[in-house]
Nucleic acid binder design. Structure first.
Lengths: 188, 188
DNA sequence: TGTACATCAGTGAACGCGCGTTCACTGATGTAC
DNA sequence: TGTACATCAGTGAACGCGCGTTCACTGATGTAC
């Protein structure tokens, strides 16, 4: 008898998280119930609550996993000019469900240590990136906040369909890079 | 018999919208029911549905009213250096409930003509502001998107409590101005 | 100015449904001997 | 290697509740005469 069919599911956590990602992608971070996740994951209706407690428990796990992926992506991209900024936008577009949860801490338990560790790891990459962009000519802190705000706002507006460009099949990465360059100087 | 106590409420629309703003402020754009709005507005539980149809109907009215206030604020502030950017952030902080609805068109009927007119009026101020910031030295379109993204991202991160500064009683307007200056040059 | 009538915004009782939660249970797994 | 037992992840029936929706109604208002 394979694990997948065993009485003890064996992968209930993963199955429920995958169901959550799918549900969030379709209906946003709060447009679903624990019973719907159970249906999607094909487990008993009480299983998600048994394992995660409540919706905030599920979303805490989503946020933690999201920040891990996010920090990895930023670390991989750092060093290149505007690498972190472009990777920030890329992540939001490629992992919309995670992104829509991560920066809304009222949805989950923001004191979760795993989530906080990954979030801080991402924050360190952004700070280093801001330091580099400031080149000693401008306040490091203000530059970091400016670049972070720009990447975050661009990603949010793009996902919301607020930028006319997002409907036209334009290349999000290219536009993000152009916008970063306009604000923070050439690629020299 | 005053209007407020008449059988025909006379102000049901206003009362329900005020209830919606209060509910959104407390629980976000989807953390409430039509019946809860009715309770807050002290009308029958079916009244909000009778008047607005459904939640999207209520949120369409919220978005339309929000964009009116927003366009007014931007128009008042335009002209000053970084005026529109600072007003953008100020609006988000002062009218959080409106702001949380306006840029999430999947929550409401985005083809509503009143909403679209006010939204486009705000967009025109942002475009003019971007034109000014570009000073003929940079692409107008890219500059507009950059400034818009920066203001939007800064406001979102501030409201989410993601910026450490937002907990410390720092002056949001001052920090916004500093960040805009870092990205778009001095105040000359 | 007064009466009759149509309109329709808002009421309130009733409905069926999906929800989270409870709780006695089942059975797979790990450990002791 | 085989048996007995404790653990506990996950089950499934049952519950009470708040929800949106329906629908016959009430009564304030505007218009016609």
């Amino acid at each position: 008898m394979g694990r997948a069919e065993s009485y003890h599911h064996g992968n209930l956590r993963r199955a429920v998280l995958d169901a959550a990602i799918a549900a969030i992608t379709e209906s946003g971070p709060s447009g679903w119930s624990l019973r719907e996740l159970a249906r999607r994951a094909e487990v008993s209706h009480a299983a998600p609550a048994h394992h995660f407690g409540d919706k905030a428990g599920v979303l805490t796990a989503v946020a933690a996993e999201g920040f891990e992926l996010f920090a990895d992506a930023l670390e991989r991209a750092a060093g290149e000019p505007y690498g972190a900024g472009v990777a920030y936008v890329r992540f939001a577009v490629d992992h919309r469900a995670y992104f829509e949860v991560m920066f809304r801490p009222e949805l989950y338990r923001a004191d979760d240590p795993e989530m906080a560790a990954a979030r801080d790891r991402a924050g360190a990459v952004l700070a280093a990136s801001g330091r580099e962009l400031s080149r000693g000519e401008r306040s490091e802190r203000a530059t970091t906040v400016a670049a972070w705000s720009l990447a975050h706002g661009f990603a949010s507006l793009w996902l919301n369909g607020a930028l006319p460009e997002s409907g036209t099949g334009a290349d999000v990465e290219e536009l993000a890079r152009e916008v970063l360059r306009v604000a923070f100087g050439g690629t020299e």
